[in-house]
């Protein structure tokens, strides 16, 4: 090794630093996607849960198509929301247990940005597949034609907010043993605005209401979640790991 290594490295220039951050961000996203794909169950289980819950409703309520059609938007949204919640607990927990979360906190890169990469991986392999699968289940609930596109779009937009908000709860409960139920308790009340406008968008599509307004508000919620939650997630991770 050269002599130079014994000296402390100078702080990188701003340009260099952002290149470094881009490398770290992409590697973290790539790593999390790879980890999930190596255990396909983690990706498929929420989807199976979603389908199963949707199957329970006609059995529990009534198979009458007219009744199912009126409640379908809400049912699909609530079931998708719960399915997304199910996989949230593992976002930081696995990393905390094997010590790699500690290393993430010690990276010279800003933690809030790196945490965002982990949330993005969660959304890409949970929220997005749920959104793509929802129209299929919509058919089973006799969802009226013309609302399928809005259903998928509202779920894709909304589930991104759900992943961001949910990650705050996951970060807060990562130090708590068996924090799964607690996580739902913390996160579900915060999910209500997304549910209102998400299910509302599908309702509006069916009843000829203003779909664009609902989607615009969903977009605004996502923007707000993108701005605020990374900082909350970073703060929560620091607290959970170091008391």
């Amino acid at each position: 090794m050269s002599k130079a290594e014994s000296r402390t490295a100078p702080l990188p220039e701003a340009g260099e630093a952002s290149v470094g951050l881009a490398i770290a961000w992409r590697a973290t996203l790539h790593r999390d996607l790879m980890l999930r794909l190596r255990r396909p169950g983690e990706v498929l289980n929420p989807l199976a849960f979603f389908a199963l819950v949707i199957t329970l409703f006609p059995i529990g309520i009534s198979p009458a198509a007219s009744l199912l059609a009126t409640i379908a938007p809400g049912l699909l949204w609530v079931a998708a929301l719960l399915a997304a919640l199910l996989s949230l607990d593992g976002v930081f927990r696995d990393d905390a247990e094997d010590g790699s979360l500690e290393q993430l906190l010690l990276s010279p890169q800003p933690l809030s940005v790196l945490a965002l990469a982990k949330v993005a991986a969660h959304w890409l392999l949970t929220g997005l597949p749920l959104a793509l699968m929802a129209p299929l289940l919509g058919v089973m609930l006799s969802l009226p034609a013309g609302s399928y596109g809005v259903l998928a779009l509202s779920l894709a937009l909304g589930s991104a907010s759900l992943s961001l908000i949910g990650a705050i709860g996951a970060a807060l409960t990562v130090g708590v043993a068996r924090g799964g139920v607690l996580l739902s308790l913390l996160v579900l009340p915060l999910y209500i605005p997304v549910l209102v406008f998400g299910a509302g968008a599908v309702q509006a599509a069916i009843q000829g209401g203003n779909v664009a307004a609902h989607l615009a508000i969903l977009g605004a919620l996502l923007a707000a979640a993108l701005i605020f939650s990374p900082f909350a997630i970073a703060a929560a991770l620091r607290i959970s790991l170091n008391g």
Partner: peptide
């Protein structure tokens, strides 16, 4: 810093583990 837990992902190979740590330092 190396802590109590090794920080090694068991689902990844040693090479992949090291690649992430290198990237975390901002190095390709």
């Amino acid at each position: 810093y190396l802590g109590h837990a090794p920080g090694v992902k068991t689902a990844l190979t040693p090479l992949e583990n090291l690649a992430w740590y290198q990237a975390l330092a901002g190095e390709r």
